[in-house]
């Protein structure tokens, strides 16, 4: 980072320019996010910067409004259920693929992570038409299933990454000492791949909690999630309550990211 004492003035100049440029890029990336935060604390019903007077009135509105509260609860339920299903399925898939005798590994892996690559609108339309056949549109189950399909690839990827450093002889040792498959998994394999499983679960939760396109297609008023509520809120009447909801979402994302960072740092140690 710092230049040696014999650096020429032009080298020093270059270094300063690089640092300034890097700071500008970072601002470009995150500034839009942090515009939201002061706006959510503004007393004005209009989006004006700089904020003239601060208040918590939009937060009061957010937590006092049954529609917002219902949306938050809906999002929470969908995200928790998605996390449970996606983590279970993704971990099982990763374990299967990691077996040395697994056939067509690359192909199956590509298939498993395809929901991440396919444009989200296509997933949404596809789910809408497909789930319609089974009466799953406008149900919470339909939403959870679609979100599980979107979230599972994250779990597959994180668990596969952890398994690449997992010593399969540990499982063999557990077997040789008397543990059958399931017992060996819960007592030896799972504790050792837990960081990957938890990272995957965090990604799965965030995927479901933030997701708006599939939710727009698959939910009716009763299952409306927080992002859907925000989206329709923007269309109907622009109101800083959305900024308060967005700030809450941002805080949650930062929290999840922090948890992930701590987890990966522990693993590296």
């Amino acid at each position: 980072m710092w230049l040696p004492s014999y650096a020429t003035p032009s080298e020093r100049m270059m270094r300063i320019l690089v640092v300034v440029f890097a700071i500008l890029v970072m601002l470009f990336l995150i500034a839009p996010l942090f515009i939201i935060v002061p706006l959510s604390f503004s007393k004005d019903p209009f989006f004006t910067l700089p904020v003239r007077e601060y208040s918590l009135r939009w937060y009061a509105d957010l937590f006092g409004n049954p529609r917002w509260m219902e949306a938050m609860v809906n999002s929470g339920i969908a995200a928790v259920l998605t996390t449970i299903f996606a983590t279970t399925l993704g971990t099982l898939a990763a374990l299967g693929i990691a077996r040395p005798d697994f056939p067509a590994r690359r192909f199956v892996m590509a298939l498993l992570i395809s929901p991440m690559i396919v444009p989200i609108v296509i997933v949404a339309v596809g789910s809408y038409l497909f789930f319609g056949q089974f009466g799953l549109t406008n149900t919470r189950a339909g939403l959870v299933f679609a979100h599980t399909a979107l979230a599972t690839p994250f779990v597959v990827i994180t668990v596969t990454a952890t398994l690449s450093t997992y010593d399969t002889n540990l499982t063999r040792a557990a077997n040789s000492l008397g543990a059958s498959g399931l017992s060996a998994f819960f007592r030896v394999t799972l504790p050792n791949i837990l960081p990957g499983v938890i990272s995957g679960a965090i990604f799965a939760f965030a995927t479901s909690f933030d997701e708006v396109v599939v939710a727009l297609f698959l939910t009716a008023a009763e299952q409306r999630t927080l992002p859907v509520q925000m989206f329709s809120g923007i269309r109907d009447q622009i109101n800083p309550t959305i900024m308060a909801a967005a700030t809450m979402l941002l805080a949650l994302s930062i929290l999840l990211f922090a948890a992930l960072t701590i987890l990966t740092r522990k693993k590296a140690r």
């Binding site: 010593d167 002889n169 540990l170 063999r172 040792a173 557990a174 077997n175 040789s176 000492l177 008397g178 543990a179 059958s180 060996a184 030896v188 504790p191 050792n192």
Partner: peptide
């Protein structure tokens, strides 16, 4: 017969001790 039913002690090359 699966390994868990054989009652054989096995010492692995890298010891395979359970790290947790």
């Amino acid at each position: 017969l699966p390994p868990e039913k054989r009652n054989i002690g096995f010492v692995f090359q890298n010891y395979a001790l359970f790290p947790h």
